[in-house]
Amino acid sequence: MAECDCSNQKEQKERKDVTVVCRCEDITLEKIREYIDKGITDLEQLKRLLRVGMGPCQGRTCTPLIIREIAAVTGKPLSEVPLTTFRPPTAPVKLGVLAGGECDD
């Protein structure tokens, strides 16, 4: 049992500096900062290069956090950081349901 705890702690320690910002696509704050530091401060570009905001929640969770990072680096007020286009559907839907003749579960 003790060993278990130990390795757990080690893992915890290794991931200490890791903050997952985009939970759907498993993208960390560090990765996002690395790209922003490279000069990519356009949310559209970040989305396409890192997949942030491309998960099932379409960025509902991560976009506000990323916008804050961009604003901090560019010195722009939050309201002036351009957002990405929201793509339908609003919630994921099964192809079988769209094709008709099946109930979603």
């Binding site: 491309m54 998960g55 099932p56 379409q58 793509r87 339908p88 559907p89 994921p92 839907v93 099964k94 192809l95 079988g96 769209l98 094709a99 099946e102």
Partner: peptide, 8 residues
């Protein structure tokens, strides 16, 4: 048919 559409 079991797959969910995320974006169009």
């Amino acid at each position: 048919k079991e797959l969910r559409v995320v974006r169009q």
